[in-house]
Design a protein around this nucleic acid. Sequence first.
DNA 1: AATACGGGGTG
DNA 2: CACCCAGTATT
Length: 366
Amino acid sequence: MVWELQQLEQLQDQLLQWYTQNQRPLPWRASRDPYRIWLSEVLLQQTQVATGLPYYLRFLERFPSIQDLAVAPQADVLKAWEGCGYYARARNFQRAAQQVAEHGFPKSYADWLELPGVGSYTAAAVASIAYNLPHAVVDGNVRRVLGRLLAQKNPSSAELQTWADTLLERNQPGIWNQAVMELGAVVCSPKNPRCSACPVQQNCLAFKTGQPQDFPAAKTRAAVKEIYAVALIIGDSQHVYLEQRPKTGLLAGLMGLPLEPFEPPQEFKELKELKELKENQENQENQELALERLSRRLNITSSTYLGTIQHRFTHRLLELHVYLGNDEGSILTRSRVANYALATLDHKVLGLLKGTLEDKVQGSLF
DNA sequence: AATACGGGGTG
DNA sequence: CACCCAGTATT
């Protein structure tokens, strides 16, 4: 066992008392409605509280009950999620809500785990917070707090779950889970942890080392892959031709501007000084071919180069060459942009158009 | 065990 | 820029 019983109880008391006095007044903490708890947990997956909070409030206003969510058009749900990222969360949440609306809320951790979009973290969070069941959450905050308490550089997820289970205060598991996460969010932060304000400082092995920020070690992340595409704007920033993205891959299933990917030459990214000119030329050719494929698919007869956008996703860097297409006769349907859930990428591209039109009269572009 | 999957906050 | 965020699903 990692902690002596006496030390364990002291640690629990210290953290719970701190949480009682220092917790942020977050709206989902004012309720034990499983729907609201669940929504908050899904919205906050890989999303900071400050970012997720306005989505939480707007989502509940639009879908006050799980029945409202279950019967809504999926497009409405995605619109409420617009800009928040990881859009599979929204689709899974609605699908799960439809199951719950029919069969009722799960009453056990194992049954929560069955729902789409509910993994070990969310199942434990809802089970503990809404149902007072003794399941310990392990999220990024818990990983950091436990990694520091035990001075672990590279804790495995199995180890973390074991330690979290041991530490769990079983009389109020929901409060306890939130207390550990709160500590990780506001005191035991990744950089410059505020150890002087920490209620469990004397039980922290990382603090004893004098270098608490070194625990746990930063996760090694896969290199960001560069990807390339051309985009065609047919219309203006308010009304534009949109199409649905493929069901898998980047921004899967969302509506968006038509894109056509292209491959840069193998050594393009390395930008060797001697070869730079030649490879840029080659890249240009692949780009033109992509624009031709896209134009042919949409029956676009001519287009004007607007500019190039760099958009960084967590794991991709997209270089997007944007063209304004001339749809002679306005064959293609223009959708009202405000009615669709567009990715931030698409809004950025449309913003490029807006900036261009400030300098030029639209008619002069052709 | 690694990778895909958004977008934004933070130092 | 690097790292992280109240992770999950897929490979």
